[in-house]
Design a protein around this nucleic acid. Sequence first.
DNA 1: ACATCTTGATAAATCGTTTTCTTAAAATAA
DNA 2: TTATTTTAAGAAAACGATTTATCAAGATGT
Lengths: 340, 340
Amino acid sequence: MVTVKKVAELANVSPSTVSRVINGAENVNPEIRERVKKVISETGYFPNNAARSLVNRKTGAIAVLIRNLHKPFFYDLLRGMKDATTAMHKCVLFCNLSDEKEERNKYMQFLTNGIVDSMILYGTLYTDWPIIENLSSSRFPFILIENNFDNSQFNQILINNFDGAMNAVRFLAENGHERIVLFMGNPNKKVNLERLNGYQRAMTECGFTLTPDNIVNIFGDSSQAFDAAQAIMRMPDEKRPTAIFTTSDKIAVQAIKGILSLGFRVPEDISVMTFDSQSHLEEEYKGPTLTGIKQPLYDVGYESISAISDIMDGKIKPPYSRTYETTIQKGETVRNLNEG
Amino acid sequence: MVTVKKVAELANVSPSTVSRVINGAENVNPEIRERVKKVISETGYFPNNAARSLVNRKTGAIAVLIRNLHKPFFYDLLRGMKDATTAMHKCVLFCNLSDEKEERNKYMQFLTNGIVDSMILYGTLYTDWPIIENLSSSRFPFILIENNFDNSQFNQILINNFDGAMNAVRFLAENGHERIVLFMGNPNKKVNLERLNGYQRAMTECGFTLTPDNIVNIFGDSSQAFDAAQAIMRMPDEKRPTAIFTTSDKIAVQAIKGILSLGFRVPEDISVMTFDSQSHLEEEYKGPTLTGIKQPLYDVGYESISAISDIMDGKIKPPYSRTYETTIQKGETVRNLNEG
DNA sequence: ACATCTTGATAAATCGTTTTCTTAAAATAA
DNA sequence: TTATTTTAAGAAAACGATTTATCAAGATGT
């Protein structure tokens, strides 16, 4: 293996000088600098990261931790991160955050002890608290994206789920809908609670009736939405909601399948609006393109890399927090009741 | 920061003893071992990877390098890798292989110098040769999945594209098709050439006519397949092929869109068979579910992690090579001409 | 009772860098 | 010319682990 020592030897200088050349220090004779550079390129020398990281406690690398990294849901997020990575010339390592506690801890310890010097964590759950606590108390720099905690101390990138949900209801209202039910996913995820709150606020703001019946819990498997949607379609016309708002694509897709299975049509017989709007990623879904609230995941991904870089460079001083707004993505699943 | 030195101090032993306890050496008094362990857990000590990697030139981590990691195509591959990772208790880092040469080299140097000690590379192209050459000559352990080289020296996992393509043609033949054209993708990818060869072999084996017209080049954007399919549908009935075999889903989807755009139907008017069969991942595709050749990507992903681990542990001695067979996935795009 | 062999622990060297401390030489000031 | 400052390079000490060589004490054999 070619080391700094060997390079020094070949160039007839001391290791310190080689190091200075590599790190671009000022005080080195141009002639010697060239000689060293030549030897470096001839030998194909590259400094060992372990040694480097050991002495200056920096690697320059960033770890991105995501639970179920393989899911197509992360397409845009990863794409954004990828583009930022090349733009910022950073080394980014993508890691799958395991559900197994033991595994997860080992992974974190591995990464934080000499591999990377900052982290981005997507969608941390309540159960991830020990990890966050650990990072935080050891002053390891990190950014959370859509986390489950309420702590303004942390660097975080958020999505305005509350306003997003409100806008969904308002959009339905503009299209003449008043009887709108919510298909609500896992309440252990903060994002779902925020969407619930937004829904409730908008409903009262619009002056629509809001009873417990308006909220259908889909807390387990998303296939519950199939049955729940069927139940709704079996209601008498005058009582039946004219629109369903769901907290996720998975739920929306199941709901639509339930509706279609009884011979009803979307949006002719009932409208469906979703949060996420990436239905093309749902396997085997052939129904109408979903209308829904779209999260700017590409931007979020890009910004996360950019922000953590800036934090590391001292250009941003923590705590850093940024909230992204959602947009409405028009598909084919919402009927305008005002027209004919 | 709590180091081995501090732990030693607190436990009233030497650093060497602490090291022995951590690495489970035999010759240490049970009483002292417990004392050290207690201090370790109390202080939350974790050995520094950089230091460790420096001295024993091992990190135990594996890097997975994929071009365009974010693409949903890798869903099953990553899922397999993920499951293997937890099963084998390994640290796996997923990396996006940049198209930019500079970027890519930096990345490789970073990873190979103290971060990971083995690698899995998916779908390396001819242009990646310098990377492979480099790894190979420095004896860095790696496995290639579906690479573009013909070198039995390398550890590799392959998919039997040749037989897969043959089986596709045979399947079409069984369903009464004789006039089968191939929509052939980028010839710079070895997999496509293999599929082409399999197609040709099966065609002659079946005794079907095989003229240059039978092979339609879709070398640029897959949207070329749209026009090509239209051209085929405009042919007179007696000359028109009864089936199209495509080397990828992207091409198949575009071809079907072209067919449908002229008012024809699939598979009533023409059959389509694909290689990959993950059409659900194609954005905005609402056509019939594709019939095609399915690659066992989950298994390949799982095996890759397992194999590189075994290689590192000396359980497998290089060069290691394994070829996976494909299966036929029946969808709705192939019509049986023998029936009615 | 003396020599030999185990055990269990330590001291010190090492891994490949960076950086601080020195020092010799060159440049400037008096 | 001599004294002082600046500059460029080398020597040596970290960084945090592991490991080899070393050594003392206790166990065993004669």
